[in-house]
């Protein structure tokens, strides 16, 4: 699948089939995540793959934004201590978030290309997730990626046009599209 096709076709899925995801498919998604860009090459991400049903259910219950059931979730955490040691405050407070977000986007696109649906969840209780997954201090759960075979086709959401969000050379100077 073309990258641009995956970027345009991916949607947030909130209804999944119960069908399990083969290990090799999960590994491909993780592989995509670990090749994301990283400020200072800190690679602060830590991925916790949750496929145990009881654990998955607990995570879902403490995550109001986690809607629908899926056979798998990847909890993307950042190693704040390591990020601070290597990247200082900028590394710890900003780059961890940016890096994890880029890793997540890579995983979303890879999952879509592999026929899977995903939904990124930020509306979860970090305290509860930390407790359930026994995450130690210094490691912060940033995002949850819910993964499963889609059982819905969401409508295409609104997107601002390029002209609405882009300027040329300086702020306020209109960018005019030349393409179709």
């Amino acid at each position: 699948m073309e990258v641009l096709e995956a970027i345009r076709g991916r949607r947030s899925i909130r209804k999944y089939k119960p069908q399990p995801i083969p290990d090799e498919v999960v590994e491909k998604i993780l592989e995509a995540g670990r090749w994301a860009p990283s400020g200072g090459n800190i690679q602060p991400w830590i991925f916790i793959v949750v496929r145990d049903r009881a654990t998955l259910e607990m995570i879902r219950k403490v995550s109001p934004g986690y809607l629908g059931t899926a056979p798998l979730a990847i909890v993307v955490c950042s190693d704040k201590q390591r990020a601070f040691q290597v990247g200082g405050r900028l590394g710890r407070d900003y780059m961890t978030i940016a890096d994890c977000a880029m890793a997540v986007q890579n995983m979303l696109l890879a999952a879509y290309a592999l026929g899977l649906g995903t939904c990124v969840v930020k509306s979860f209780s970090p305290i509860a997730v930390r407790e359930i997954l026994e995450i130690p201090d210094g490691i912060e759960p940033e995002l949850i990626v819910v993964v499963g075979y889609p059982d819905e086709r969401p409508v295409v959401p609104h997107r601002f046009s390029i002209e609405e969000i882009t300027y040329l050379d300086k702020y306020g100077n209109k960018f005019v599209r030349k393409g179709p």
Binding site: K61, V62, S63, P64, G65, S123, F124, S125, I127, A128
Partner: peptide, 10 residues
């Protein structure tokens, strides 16, 4: 109840 508690904080 868990949903309401986590939602309240969220």
């Amino acid at each position: 109840l868990v949903f309401l508690a986590t939602s309240a904080r969220g």
